[in-house]
């Protein structure tokens, strides 16, 4: 019996390790190759060297050569700033607009409440891929093509975020608000001074979900922000990939750079993200 258990353990750990290798090796190769010149990338590919960083003194022109080349050939800095403005703009305005709406749906007795809730839930289902063409024509007619307004404003109101806020505020103890109202706080005052400071977790969750979704956005920035001055990082990478001559090292450097902001978000805020998605998973 005991022997069987040990054997099972060994099999378990070996399969875990094999799986970990499968999931990690493309990433490791990407990061490691970003520090090598193309010649070395190809030379190392036939051995385990492919997954090891260059030995000291081996990298010609220094370890960061690829990064310098990548930033020279494509305006990665500009693209990342654009992506941050795009996602940041949606997060700041979106938190404001959607939390207010979620609060109204959770707390106020409003005529036709059922209809509004129904519409918001219905819009939850329609993916942006459905409407990007008519939406583009609308934004075009508004004169917002190649502007941050065109990128940001259509995606401020977010049915998913409204829904998440509503769920949270439904569970929020009513007594606090009533106490604030008796002390003469207006409803708007109550919301901003009592509710918001006590709802940091849900604000954090929504902010992270919005960041991840929009940082990764491809189709909408592709059609509405084609101009280089407003290009987001995802679109910038696509242009860089198709730019001649194709150099592997700088490409890997660019991919690594584009991943760093997401690493940051997941590294520090993963807790909120997991809370958010398990919450929707169980309640949906």
């Amino acid at each position: 019996m005991k022997k069987k258990k040990t054997f099972q353990r060994i099999v378990l750990y070996i399969s875990l390790l094999v799986l970990a290798v499968i999931f990690l090796f493309p990433l490791v190769w990407m990061v490691v190759s970003s520090f090598k010149d193309d010649l070395q990338i190809f030379r190392d590919m036939t051995s385990i060297q492919a997954f090891l960083p260059p030995m000291p003194g081996e990298a010609e022109g220094g370890y960061l050569e690829n990064y310098i080349v990548a930033f020279e050939r494509a305006d990665l800095f500009r693209y990342i700033i654009n992506s941050l403005i795009y996602t940041g703009g949606i997060i700041v305005t979106g938190l404001f607009v959607n939390s207010l709406a979620g609060y109204a749906l959770a707390r106020f007795r409003i005529p036709f409440m059922g209809i509004w809730l129904g519409i918001i839930i219905a819009t939850l289902i329609i993916p942006p891929e459905s409407i990007f063409l008519p939406l583009y024509l609308l934004v075009f007619n508004l004169g917002w093509v190649n502007t941050f307004s065109g990128l940001i404003i259509p995606f401020i109101a977010n049915a998913f975020a409204i829904f998440l806020f509503r769920q949270f505020f439904l569970d929020f103890p009513k007594e606090l608000e009533e106490a604030a109202r008796i002390d003469g706080c207006s409803q708007i005052g109550t919301f901003f001074r009592i509710i918001v400071p006590l709802s940091k977790p849900v604000f954090a969750t929504v902010a992270i979900v919005l960041f991840i979704n929009h940082w990764n956005d491809f189709l909408w920035p592709l059609v509405v922000a084609s101009d280089e001055s407003i290009r987001t990082i995802q679109i910038g990478l696509q242009y860089f990939m198709n730019q001649e001559p194709v150099e592997w090292g700088p490409m890997m450097a660019a991919l690594t750079v584009a991943t760093i902001p997401m690493l940051f978000v997941f590294g520090f805020l993963q807790r909120y993200y997991v809370q958010g998605l398990t919450h929707t998973g169980s309640k949906n």
Binding site: V97, L100, A101, A104, R107, F108, I110, W116, I162, I188
Partner: peptide, 10 residues
């Protein structure tokens, strides 16, 4: 007030 809160999103 409820509609005021809802208006921007709607």
């Amino acid at each position: 007030t409820g509609y005021l809160f809802l208006a921007p999103a709607l």
